[in-house]
Design a protein around this nucleic acid. Structure first.
Lengths: 222, 222
DNA sequence: TAAATAGTGTCTATCAGACAATATCGT
DNA sequence: ACGATATTGTCTGATAGACACTATTTA
């Protein structure tokens, strides 16, 4: 058995769960209880279980369920980290998946009986003591999200199911870390809308009221 | 041992090696000799050997060396494919790496005593009988390369160490699958050049001569 | 009526695409 | 001189950014 140890690396997934809280993009971290790296902040994750998981993406979904009690969130694969040194126990592989949650759902991910030590941290000002290479995982996830938005994509996962354009703009601004012009943002949406290439549509007749002038609501297409 | 089998998936890397031949982007494929999928076209690859490989990227470099006899080519991680069904032998993980080679080097990757069945195939017209999920690996690699160029990047791996702007433009055009305007291309290069954000610089005093008017040569920065 | 948020209109500097013009080589 | 390729110049329509303006609600 000992000689087989190095033939089979540890295989895991780690989750970079992002949300906009206030005006900042934040990431959910857990305080590790066990060695190695006990006491440091770590991403939620899970070990691959080939008997239960159809794919690493399924492992990621299972981690969401087991560690946080949430299910059926879209995840996007970011990068696979590997090496003999990143985990002192053994040669290891970990594939990073990124998930986006709206601010309202983010509150539900704070500590529960199932999960202790959950805490949101600004991605631009992360804790100094982070476990393994989890800091690099966060950086790579945010970088890819920024690229996606710069290429004309929208982080629909960061806004509620029904959202206003102002909310979507605020989410984009938080990710990019800079203010966006309202007029420019809406013009771009309209252009893509008339081209039919948008992943969301007007929720006809639905308006957000309560604060001031009612705002048109939008929702994911189909 | 049998009950441990499913706890340790097969871990491998596959290589998408791209080159511009003629005016088309092509990928290097091998004809598989053994089951499973014998007779189908497959990407070159290797199984992880944790005793020799510092990381999956090192596995990719070793695959380049062992299967093709070339070393020290830059590789870029593309995506990790996983699942219990993709390889009939066992639950498996394969991380795809993409490498770019200039046309001149591409010729050296044709069959040798070490390697038989090597053949270049157009990425837009791949063979119908492809092994495993290798077709998806190619598509994802090309997609990422197109994105990289559309974001202002240049596929330096596709041109020789010393190259002209016309050669670089031809490489971009082949990847994108459409002709590029000479003037627009050079203007963009000049802008980035004066901003100092280019990954390559003028090779001072070096010109390509022989055919017609000599052309300024460029090379990777430092 | 004032404050706050939603949504539109306009001006302008900049840029990408198309294409013309010039430069410099081999034959 | 001529053909071929390199390199530069010019015109124009489209676009992004900045910012002013209007609209509709609550208080």
């Amino acid at each position: 058995m000992v000689e087989r140890r190095h033939l089979s690396p540890i295989v895991a997934v780690d989750l970079v769960i992002l949300s906009v809280r206030g005006e900042r993009l934040e990431v959910l971290l857990l305080k590790r209880q066990e060695a190695p790296d006990a006491g440091k902040w770590a991403l939620p994750g899970a070990l691959l279980d080939p008997d239960r998981d159809d794919s690493l993406e399924a492992t990621a979904q299972r981690a969401l369920e087991e560690k946080l009690g949430v299910g059926a969130i879209a995840v996007r694969q970011v990068h696979t980290f590997s090496g003999g040194k990143r985990d002192p126990r053994d040669w290891s592989i970990s594939t990073t998946y990124c998930a986006l949650v709206p601010e309202r759902e983010a509150e539900r991910l704070l500590p529960t009986p199932l999960t202790s030590g959950n805490q949101w941290h600004p991605v631009q000002d992360p804790p100094s003591r982070m476990a393994f290479d989890h800091r690099a995982m966060i950086d790579k996830s945010v970088e890819q999200l920024v690229t996606h938005i710069n290429m004309g994509g929208y982080p629909l996962g960061l806004v509620p199911r029904l959202f206003t354009l102002s909310e979507l703009q605020a989410a984009c601004a938080a990710v990019l870390g800079r203010p966006l012009d309202k007029s420019v943002f809406r013009r771009q949406v309209k252009i893509l809308m008339s081209a039919g290439t948008l992943p969301f549509v007007e929720a006809e007749g639905e308006f957000k009221t309560g604060t001031h002038r009612p705002a048109q609501l939008y929702c994911e297409r189909c």
